[in-house]
Amino acid sequence: MKPEDQKRLLREMIFYRRFEDRCFEAYMERKVGGFLHLYSGQEAVATGVLERAKPGHDYVITGYRDHVHALKSGAPAREVMAELYGKETGSSKGRGGSMHIFDPTVNFMGGYALVGQPFPLAAGLALGAKHRGEGQIAICFLGDGANNQGTFHETMNMASVWNLPVLFVCENNEYAIGTHIDRSTAVRDQYKRVCGYNMEASQHDGMDIDVVMEAASKAIDYVRGESKPYFIEFMTYRFRGHSMSDAKSYRTKEEEAEWEKRDPIKVYSRRLKKAGVISDADIKAMEKEIDDEVENDIIKFAEESPEPKIEDLTRYVLDDNPDPRWIGPLVNEGE
C-alpha cells in the first residue's frame, strides 16, 4: 500500500473518532436527541472492509451504530451531522436521526434500529443487484448480538440457498447491549454459527486495519467472483457504552484497559511511525486539521441549517407524486 494511502486511512480513522466524540459533546449539549450509539474503538472494521469494497457502488447496510459506515461509504459528513441535529439538510432530511442515516446517492442503504433486521434487507439488496447484473455486492455490518435473532438464521439459509452476493460482517464486540456474549450465546466464535448453512466464514482481529483489509479483500473477491455469501467476523471492542444512557457497569476497568491498548488508531499510527511513513508532528497537525474541519465546517453547517418545515410533517409517508393511473381515486358514476 502506498504511504499516502496509509496516511489517508489513518486520517480517516482519526476523523471518525473525532466525529463520534463531537457527536457525544453535541448530545451532552442537548443539540442531538434520541438514542446515540457511537463507534469509537471499532473504526478499523468499517474503514478496512469498505476500503477493500467499492464504496458508492456496492450496497452497504447496517444497524443503528451507523455514522462511520455511512461516512466511509461516501455520505457527506456535514449531512450526517445535520441529520443528528434533525435538520432539513441532513442525510434523511431530519426524519431519521442518528440511527437512520440513509444516502442512496452512495448506495448507503440505511441504519436500522431493529436488531437483526438488516440481515434480510441486505440479502434483498444482493438479490436485486444480482438480478440487475450491475456488479454490486451487498455488505451488511452488524454486531454479535444480532446473531441471536431469527432473521440471522433465516437469512443465512436463504443467502446460501440462492447464492446471493452478500458479505455479512460481524463486528463482535462481545456485548449485546450490556450482556456479555458468554452469558447470551452458546458459541463465542460467531463465524462457526454459519457452517450449518453451508457458508464460507472466517474470524480475524478487528483492531488492526491491515488484518481487516487483507481478510476483507479475500472475502469480497469471493463474494463478487463466485456470487455467493460470506460471513466474516472481526473481534473488536467499543470503547464507549452501548448508547449514551449506558454506565458500562457490566464490564471491568481492567478489561477496558486491555482493549484500549489495542486501540486501532494507536496500533496503526505506531506501525506507520515505525515504518517512517508518518511522524508525531504529522499526526498532531492532522488532528488539528480534523478538529478545525469538524468544528468550523461540519458542526457549523449542522448548527446553521434550517429545521424541516412543520407543513412538511406528512411528506414522505407515501409517494408524494403518485401516478393517478394506478392510484386513482376511483370515480363512481354520477359522482
Binding site: P120, L121, A123, G124, L125, L127, G128, G150, T155, M158
Partner: peptide, 16 residues
C-alpha cells in the same frame, strides 16, 4: 416469512 419478506423489501429498495 419475516426474512423472505425482508429480502423482498431489500430488493424493492434497489429497483425490483
Amino acid at each position: 416469512e419475516n426474512s423472505y419478506t425482508g429480502i423482498g423489501i431489500g430488493a424493492s429498495m434497489v429497483g425490483m
